[in-house]
Simulated assay, not measured.
Amino acid sequence: MSHNSYLTASQQKTRKKNLFILSILTILIIVTFIISMNTGVIKLTPMEVLSTLFGQGDAQQQLILFEFRLPRIIVAVLVGMGLAISGAILQGISRNALADPGILGINAGAGLMVMLFISFFPATAAAPVFLLPVLAFIGSGMTAILIYALSYKRHEGITPMRLLLTGIAVAAGISSAMIVLTLRLSPENYQFVATWLAGSIWGSNWKFVLALLPWLIVLLPFVYSKSRVLNVLNLGELTAVGLGASIEKERRWLLAASVGLAGASVSVSGGIGFVGLIAPHLARQLVGAKHQILLPASALVGGLLVLMADTIGRSLLEPSEIPAGIVVAVLGAPYFLYLLARLKQ
Results as ranks from 00 to 15, higher is better:
L219E: 04
L219D: 06
L219R: 03
L220H: 05
Y224G: 03
Y224I: 00
S225T: 14
S225Q: 13
K226V: 01
K226S: 13
S227R: 15
S227D: 05
R228E: 12
R228F: 04
R228G: 01
V229A: 13
V229N: 10
V229F: 05
V229H: 04
L230K: 12
V232W: 01
V232N: 11
L233C: 15
L233K: 09
N234C: 06
L235D: 08
L235P: 02
L235E: 10
L235V: 08
G236R: 08
G236E: 11
G236I: 03
G236V: 05
E237V: 08
E237C: 06
L238C: 03
L238P: 00
L238D: 15
T239R: 12
A240N: 04
A240E: 04
V241R: 10
G242Y: 06
G242I: 09
G242E: 04
L243Q: 07
L243V: 08
G244N: 12
G244K: 06
A245M: 13
A245D: 00
A245K: 09
S246M: 04
I247S: 04
I247P: 00
I247M: 02
E248L: 08
K249G: 14
K249H: 01
W253R: 09
L255E: 13
L255H: 12
A256C: 09
A256Q: 06
V259Y: 11
G260D: 14
L261A: 06
G263W: 13
G263M: 01
G263H: 14
G263E: 11
A264K: 02
A264N: 05
S265C: 11
S265T: 12
S267G: 05
S267I: 11
V268M: 00
S269N: 13
G270A: 02
G270F: 13
G271S: 06
I272T: 09
G273C: 04
V275W: 02
V275N: 07
V275D: 10
G276Y: 00
L277R: 06
L277P: 01
I278K: 00
P280Y: 04
P280S: 01
H281K: 07
H281L: 04
H281R: 09
L282F: 12
A283E: 07
A283R: 02
R284C: 05
R284Q: 15
Q285G: 15
L286H: 05
L286Q: 05
L286R: 06
V287C: 00
V287W: 02
V287L: 02
G288E: 02
A289T: 14
A289H: 10
A289P: 03
K290G: 08
K290F: 02
K290V: 03
H291V: 03
H291N: 14
H291L: 00
Q292F: 00
Q292T: 07
Q292H: 09
Q292R: 13
I293C: 01
I293E: 01
L294E: 09
L295G: 01
P296E: 07
S298Y: 03
S298K: 00
S298R: 07
S298H: 10
A299S: 14
L300W: 07
L300I: 11
L300K: 09
L300N: 11
L300H: 13
L300G: 11
V301G: 13
V301M: 14
V301W: 10
V301T: 14
V301Q: 10
G302Q: 13
G302T: 11
G303Q: 05
L304W: 15
L304E: 10
L305T: 12
L305G: 14
L305E: 09
L305N: 06
V306C: 06
M308E: 04
M308A: 15
